[in-house]
Design a protein around this nucleic acid. Structure first.
Lengths: 242, 242
DNA sequence: CGGCAGTTTGATGTTACTCAATTTAAGTGG
DNA sequence: CCACTTAAATTGAGTAACATCAAACTGCCG
């Protein structure tokens, strides 16, 4: 019995179906076949939906990567509101910045039950210095985060409710599709309307109305954890930037 | 006559008054006294206020740094609107990500007349691999950008108009103060109300009303390119996150 | 069946936008 | 120094978008 099955992990990494090692993702795709990287021995743990996931205990110095399930980075505001900054999919790092820095200003919450891999930050740091591919992968991960953040900024700052929701869904669709084959425009999407609201700066009630409007216009339906797209062109017309 | 004066540049770098070399900033503060870095020979140019500044011509492979004046990163939307993503102060890199990547999704515009320094991206890349301090500096720059973006996201997504304006001003004050001594709560701030509006997702008219309210409440005045703070505590109460 | 979390719908309120006019400030050339 | 021009700031009135409040409805699970 392979070690991964013993650890209660799915046999294949959702992020990289072609791979059987337990951590990969944007950062590690570039180095998957670099045998020296496998020396970074990951450990795994499980977190229930709804729990906050500490990802930067000063003592531990661990880098966390999402192996299965969904999570999200968010900012907690004084007045009980929260802003979701980015949804994390299997393969995503909780916080690339913690490789080189202690302080981060956001939290991470588990959207579904999740499995989390942990690696020693010091090991990754070492690799960054010795292996150009690893350093580039880390850079690219941070760059993608930055690009996503800037696009979301433009969306929140300047665009109406329907465009915001459409943008979020398109963004998630793209990222989901990059991780698994989606044959029939049906995407697994375990979000509550509350999460969408927290991500695009609207109230859940208003998100509901926007989704109802999309449904009426036969653009999409979102129910039971599945997003089904029926008019992609229209969704893109509404949601894409520029 | 020193080379810098010949080039028409101010005798001291605004970002690093203690230094007389012409480029520094967040990225290079860490390496200022690393003599090997000075081999990266910068070139300079001037851009008039209001102009767009190309910072990623495929051919050139240059990294641009702001030497004097103000600029801003922004996203141009289809419907003539724009979202300002970050104001750039002397010493800021136009786009840290262009060190390792060609594609960036934002433009940079000159807010005032500016002087721009250029360095070869390939040289910086080389240094990143050979010099840990340089790599850390680049990481830190990208991290700061990311942190700023996330904080602004929370502000745009979840907070009312007065908090948005207050947040922006506090953020700029902090960054200005980190570059020069501000003895009397008077900050140089060459922004039009239009720029504030574009940065915080409001209309110029509404920004005007918010500023008028701040003035009435004796919190601050913003006129003639100078921001004067008269009640910092109140401004922070309104504007700070969490 | 009851309880619960999430969704949906309606009615009403508030914030910020739009449009348009007026005032102020900053040049510019005479 | 003064007309003239122009960009920016300011003010008011009306409107649209989204929030808030509250209730009803759904599916799910014990």
């Amino acid at each position: 019995m392979p070690a991964r099955a013993k650890a209660g992990l799915p046999d294949r990494c959702v992020a990289c179906p072609q791979s059987t090692i337990g951590f990969c993702g944007a950062l590690f795709n570039a180095c998957l076949h670099n045998s020296s990287l496998r020396k970074i021995n990951p450990r795994f743990s499980t977190v229930r939906a709804g729990q906050r996931i500490p990802y930067q205990s000063q003592s531990s110095g661990d880098i966390l990567i999402l192996c299965t399930g969904w999570a999200f980075r968010y900012c907690q505001l004084a007045d009980d509101g929260r802003q979701i900054l980015k949804f994390l999919l299997p393969g995503d790092l909780f916080s690339p910045a913690t490789i080189f820095s202690e302080h981060q200003s956001f939290f991470v919450g588990a959207l579904t039950d999740v499995q989390v891999g942990r690696m020693e930050a010091s090991e990754i740091r070492k690799k960054c210095l010795s292996d150009e591919a690893v350093m580039l992968a880390v850079f690219n991960t941070m760059m993608d985060d930055g690009q996503d953040a800037y696009q979301l900024l433009a969306t929140l700052g300047r665009r109406p409710a329907d465009a915001r929701v459409a943008y979020l869904l398109l963004n998630l669709m793209r990222r989901i599709a990059s991780r698994s084959v989606i044959p029939d425009h049906r995407y697994p999407l375990p979000l509550r309307q509350q999460h969408i609201a927290d991500a695009v700066g609207l109230t859940p009630v208003h998100v509901n109305r926007v989704l109802a409007q999309f449904r009426d216009q036969k653009i999409l339906t979102l129910a039971g954890g599945t997003l089904e797209i029926t008019d992609l062109a229209e969704l893109e017309r509404i949601g894409s930037l520029a």
